[in-house]
Structure formats: structure tokens, C-alpha cells
Design a protein around this nucleic acid. Sequence first.
DNA 1: CGAATACGATACACTGTGTTTCATAACTTT
DNA 2: AAAGTTATGAAACACAGTGTATCGTATTCG
Lengths: 205, 205
Amino acid sequence: MSAILYAMADTASKLDARVRRSRLRLRQALVELVLQRGYDAVTIRDLTSRADVGYATFFRHFQDKDALLRSLLDELLDELMSLLAPSLADADASRTGTLVFEHVQQNADLYRVLISSQRFVDLVSRAASLGETEMRRDHALSGDALLPPDAAVNHLVKSTIALIEWWLYAGMSPDPRRMGEAFEVLIMAPVKAVAFRRLSGARPS
Amino acid sequence: MSAILYAMADTASKLDARVRRSRLRLRQALVELVLQRGYDAVTIRDLTSRADVGYATFFRHFQDKDALLRSLLDELLDELMSLLAPSLADADASRTGTLVFEHVQQNADLYRVLISSQRFVDLVSRAASLGETEMRRDHALSGDALLPPDAAVNHLVKSTIALIEWWLYAGMSPDPRRMGEAFEVLIMAPVKAVAFRRLSGARPS
DNA sequence: CGAATACGATACACTGTGTTTCATAACTTT
DNA sequence: AAAGTTATGAAACACAGTGTATCGTATTCG
């Protein structure tokens, strides 16, 4: 079980011990049951029963099943972003990629539960859009790029998530170092080529 | 409204006219309502009400909402595959990409409804895996590729779908020809590089 | 025309969500 | 350690949506 579940309880340690206990149990139950049956197949009654918590108690803490998922997701991505922050300044894609895959490896169960949710895509997209704004300064974005910047950001986010998802269910077999390299070659370099360099054919010269 | 809806009715023209009418109406209702509210927000009662069809009649034709979606999806992908078949032999990625984006443009509403479904990914993945088997013969797959072939197929499928999805909601603005080129540069060429050529660093000379 | 059958309407059982109430147990504060 | 606060479990409830069964009627096919 990932350490993040407990870190979250610590973060809110000013709260009543009963509240921390209920929330922790519900979070653990979500992870366990979703790994077994998939998100949609898990009912709130399943969760409260597995968490050994009253049914109504669920709604005292979370508006619905999605809110419970999001509470886990927000913590996980916060941790990932602070892990990545120093490396993003270097603009070394391979190194950044390796850090991501190491984080995934250390929190594999949590990623398996969270990565397919729409909110995961949304949050990462928002972060990537911010990064793109910075990159635009450096690369001086030629007007005749093959695709507009938001297409590039979309591709970067979606295909990176897809690569992580594949890796999670392929036994995490190429190690994070090599996955970081693959991330650079397969995704990062082509994105830069398509959105920041010039069109291939139409060169009048 | 896409012509495919009617083509489907024709295909099954041996059936009772009442059956064809009910199915056609339900399919139209699905497309219209999903475009308005999104798939999950549409209930079967919504569908039958909009289709002007009895509630129980829905279940005489489709097991559930997903089965109705799949019936549309299977037809759409069948049409796409037969459109692509000749161009796949040429192995001209840019041309194939252009054909795909033209098909999307001609059936934009249908793609908007269907592309986010899990079954869409599954069906395209299956098709792509078959294509990959052929490609493996030509490229003689070196053993020290950066990623295994199924990672490449996964990336190809997921990122292509993501690119189409972006394009659908960005007003389909770069034309299909340019999108075909982008598909080749951004996706197809890197996939070949990563799965079929050698590792970059570890070359003992 | 006449037989076959798909249809709409209705009632029903069932599952899951979300709310409310209340007595009790657990926790925090002093 | 006692007193006050508050989160809890249990239970009952209204509600929405799914999927099934029945039956008389209308449409379609031959």
C-alpha cells in the first residue's frame, strides 16, 4: 500500500481522530476494490462495507465516489509535481521522464486506480499548458508549424499517460531509466519538432 | 446527420419495416442526445422518449445502452477499414493519415459520439495489432529496440485517437492533408524509430 | 384478406444513490 | 479524570434508473 494514503491523513492531522480514521479506511477500500473489480463496478455500499464504516458516513466526507477518487488524485499529483519541479528547469526530457516512471513504480497501485480517470487527464493537461507557455519563449515558435501548440500539449499529455498505462500493465519491465529515454525519443522530441519547427514540404528557397 | 445511420438500416433491409424504423430512431436519438449531454447523462428513457418509441421496445433490440453504441461503432469502423485497406499496402503513413482524417470529417458527429468509448480503443487496437504483425516482417525487428512492439502499437493507437479527438473539438482546422502529414511526423515515424531501430546510447561500435 | 409479429402501455421487482433522524460511543478540552 | 462536543452506526425513507413480464392493438408481410 502506497505511503501517500497515510501522508494524506497526516496533512489533515488537526482533524478529529474519528474523521481521519474514516477517510483513511474509505481511501484504502477504494484502492483495493477498484484494483479488483474496476471503478464502475464498485458501489458506495461496497466501499463502506469494506471500510467497516456506516453507509451514511461516506457522504459526511465525500460528495460522491468521484470526490473520493479526486482526493487521492490531487495528493498524488501534488507529490509528483514537486518531485519534477527541479528537473523541469533543466529541460532534460529524458531525466524528467525517468523521474516520472520512478514515481509511478513507487506508487503503482495508486496509479493503476487513478490514471484512467478523466480528472487525471485534466489536471496533467493544466500543468502541461503552463509548461508550454514557458517553452514558447525559448523556442520562438515559428508561425508555420505543422500543428498549433495546444495540439502539441494534448498529444504530449495523452500519449505520456498512455505510455505509463501500458507500462503499468506490462509488468513495468523496461526500467524507469530506459522508459525515460523512450519518452524523449517517442514523445518529447517529435512534439518539439511538430509544434516548434517548420513545415517539412513547403520550403520555397 | 451521417449517412452511415441509414446505410445500417439498408444493410438489414430484410428485417420487418417496424424493426428497421425502431432501430434507426434509437440510433439517431443516441447521437443527438449524447452530443448534447454526454453519454453518461443519457438514460434509456431519454432515448426511447426522443425516439418516440416505447420504453420496453429498446430492450427488444439492444441489451443495454452500450450495445446500441457498439452497433454504431462497428459499422463506422468497418467502413473506415475498407476505406483504408488499399492504402495500408502502400505503407505511406501520410496518405493513410489523410484518409482517416477525411473520414472523420465526413462523419464528425458520429466520431464525436463514439471516439471516447472504450470499445473504440479496443477495436482499433485489435486492427493495429494485425497490422503490426505484417510490419514486423518488413522491418526485421532488432532485438535491442528501445520498446517492445506492443508498446509501440499501444502508443500508435492511443495517440492517434487523441489527435483525432483534439482535431474534432478544435474545429477540424488544419485540413486532412496537413493532419495526415502531422500524423506521420508526430506519431508514425517515432513509433518506427523506437520499436524497430536500435538503442541510441549503448552501441559498442 | 388473414396470419404473424412488433408495438405501446403498464405494472413490477430490483439495485443503487443520497437524506434524515436518533441514540450512543469516541474524542477533545480543561 | 470529568464534562461537553461531535462523529458515528443503524435504520427508514424517497427517488431514479434498469430490466422483465403481460396484454390488447396496430402494422406488416405473404
